[in-house]
Design a binder for these strands. Structure first.
Lengths: 216, 216
DNA sequence: TGTACATCAGTGAACGCGCGTTCACTGATGTAC
DNA sequence: TGTACATCAGTGAACGCGCGTTCACTGATGTAC
């Protein structure tokens, strides 16, 4: 630790130090505990140990704070998926499955981010960087699908975009319906296993995974 | 029309007539316009032309009203899916696809019901009839999957429950991500086409649909 | 058919609450000299 | 190194608002006789 009062971005400085970060963390905790509608500026300020007016030095309004969280969520999400994909190594199919697992892992491990990203009615149009960040996350999936499709001979290649959309929808569906231990829904297998099996079966019919088809 | 003041459940009688129904309709409109969090008892009462205290003659509290809406939603949902399945006629595969289409149609045509059913944090445990109604809806899908699987020779039958879960997740994912004309997401095909293609491809790999596999 | 009574759906006023946001302020920090 | 000044993060009080819910009530309806 080399900071003695300046430099670094740890808590310190001014009155609070890192209020912006503290507010984001407080908001994330609120969303995780109470759902997206449980977040309020006032309560986030309270948890950050600050007056209710303070947040407005850092965010235009409540929605702006939420949008910032969603933005960061998409950035982390993109990073997770990209890391899982790992350039398609060791092989495209295995890497693709890793992306699916990473999708679910993110939804489970970062439910607050995930909720801010997908269960919020933020007008993406009003926050262009947010739309861009969401597009980037999807691009990982699309690129992976393209690489996967490229392993097939020309002429036998299904549309990669469609594959990406199907996998995204399946992953989101599994995450939304069974992702958390909602107890309401009893499953014969874990969400991860369910998604993995679904993706594999789906890819099989495209000739992109082995499985039951022993011919060829 | 044979009612002249008694019998029947049309608007009439007492002060309002059918306040309970009017409140439910007002709440549905609110949810459709503003999302689940946009619903308030006070505003629903206002729209029904009634004092803010009146709803409490019919519902214990705000959540009870929401739960009633979710309950009715699941009942309609079950009816829609059952009708689409139509006992598996004319053939199980075609009927199964119809169920998928009916799923999306419900999400699109009844967004308020759908939101109350799936985008709300109602504690299902607190409303046993609600849990039962949701189970019934899923049962349609599971039964259909069982019938579909039964067309395969014994020993080659994949688990029907898994199929039902996969299709449910895919349908929910498509509905949640692309269901409304959210404009935010541009698709190369309609949600219906996307879901249908996804289900067909998925079933193909299980030997439950023809498609690209010309062998056999 | 008429009357007295019980029921109970809807009233309207009120409560306490927490929220989002604003405003003039104050005081700690950074910086120019 | 010291001082004056500018900056601006956070204060605290206040606003207007709409909400959920309660309460004693009132008045239309249904019913027993």
């Amino acid at each position: 630790m080399s900071w003695t009062g300046r430099g670094g971005n740890e808590r310190r400085g001014y009155h609070h130090g890192n209020l912006r970060e503290a507010l984001i963390e407080a908001a994330l905790a609120l969303i995780a505990e109470l759902g997206p509608s449980g977040f309020t500026v006032a309560e986030a300020a309270r948890r950050a140990g600050v007056s209710p007016a303070a947040p407005y030095r850092h965010f235009r309004d409540a929605e702006a704070l939420l949008a910032e969280i969603a933005l960061r969520g998409f950035e982390r999400f993109t990073a997770s998926l990209a890391q899982a994909w790992n350039g398609g190594k060791p092989d495209p199919l295995g890497a693709f499955e890793n992306v699916g697992r990473a999708y679910l892992a993110f939804a489970r491990d970062e439910p607050a981010f995930y909720a801010a990203m997908f269960e919020t009615r933020i007008a993406f149009d009003s926050y262009p960087p947010l739309q861009a960040a969401a597009d980037q996350a999807f691009a990982i999936l699309r690129d992976a699908a393209e690489r996967l499709v490229a392993t097939l001979p020309t002429g036998k290649r299904p549309p990669a975009l469609m594959i990406a959309l199907h996998v995204w929808a399946l992953a989101h569906g599994v995450a939304a319906l069974f992702g958390r231990g909602d107890a309401g829904r009893k499953l014969p297998m874990s969400p991860e296993e369910l998604l993995e099996a679904g993706i594999l079966l789906y890819l099989q019919s495209l000739g992109l995974a082995g499985g039951a088809r022993k011919e060829n």
